[in-house]
């Protein structure tokens, strides 16, 4: 049964329909909350608050977006609120705390290798989750948020910018860094060491006298 049918039933007073919606989306939304707040109790609070919000405002939900999208927004805002609270900020944009160092070092691809195969087949499920968790945990908050909203939740660049209170250009820069950093970490785990590629040969893009990595880094700093 389509979500929209369940929403209509819930709106007309059918609690079982609402509960079915909760059951359908709670796993994904809990995972989303965890990716943002990084702490189990906070994630639970976020998800509970979000569903209570949804329940109380169901009549106002005009279904211009899907129920999934609507809930994603509610959970995201609730989770960002937790982050702000932790910083002792209630109303100030997260951006003021995260805008410094935008011109800092950009990771350049270092470990380049073909992956050994499907990660789900290389390591066991629990190990895979741990690896993914550790890699994303190592990211700075500003990179993590952009990656989670844009790449995991599939928000557009514009929507991600709006939700985080930053410019679309900032979203793009941060997303590139986030992707490169995660790629680096995961390739060190899943990459085929014996097939590792070094940019040792001179490329047409390399600057004379600089190693490829240095040239690459330099070009990033200039951009």
């Amino acid at each position: 049964m389509d979500d929209s049918v369940l929403v209509a039933r819930a709106k007309s007073g059918d609690y079982e329909a609402f509960e079915q919606l909760v059951s359908r989306h709670e796993r994904r939304l809990y995972a989303l909350a965890m990716k943002i707040v990084r702490q189990r109790e906070d994630a639970e609070d976020v998800v509970q608050t979000a569903f209570l919000d949804a329940l109380e405002h169901l009549a106002d939900f005009r279904e211009e977006a899907s129920f999934a999208t609507w809930m994603t927004r509610i959970v995201t805002y609730a989770a960002l609120k937790v982050l702000r609270k932790r910083k002792g900020l209630e109303t100030v944009s997260l951006e003021e705390f995260t805008s410094e160092n935008e011109e800092g070092e950009i990771p350049h691809p270092e470990y380049i290798a073909d992956w050994r195969g499907d990660p789900a087949k290389i390591v066991e499920q629990r190990e895979l989750k741990r690896i993914l968790d550790e890699a994303i945990d190592a990211l700075d908050e500003k990179y993590r948020l952009v990656f989670v909203l844009r790449d995991v939740e599939g928000m557009s660049v514009e929507e991600t910018a709006k939700v985080l209170g930053i410019t679309p250009a900032n979203v793009k820069v941060r997303l590139l860094r986030a992707r490169l950093m995660l790629r680096e970490k995961l390739t060190r785990v899943f990459g085929d060491e014996s097939q590792r590629v070094f940019r040792s040969h001179r490329h047409e893009g390399d600057e004379r006298g600089a190693t490829p990595a240095e040239a690459l880094l330099k070009s990033y700093r200039q951009s």
């Binding site: 995972a31 990716k35 073909d114 790629r183 390739t187």
Partner: peptide
């Protein structure tokens, strides 16, 4: 590997 990284995070429910 960037594509695989994104796909992995999209498809895997890291937190239960």
């Amino acid at each position: 590997s960037i594509r695989k990284t994104i796909t992995l995070y999209k498809g895997e429910e890291v937190y239960e």
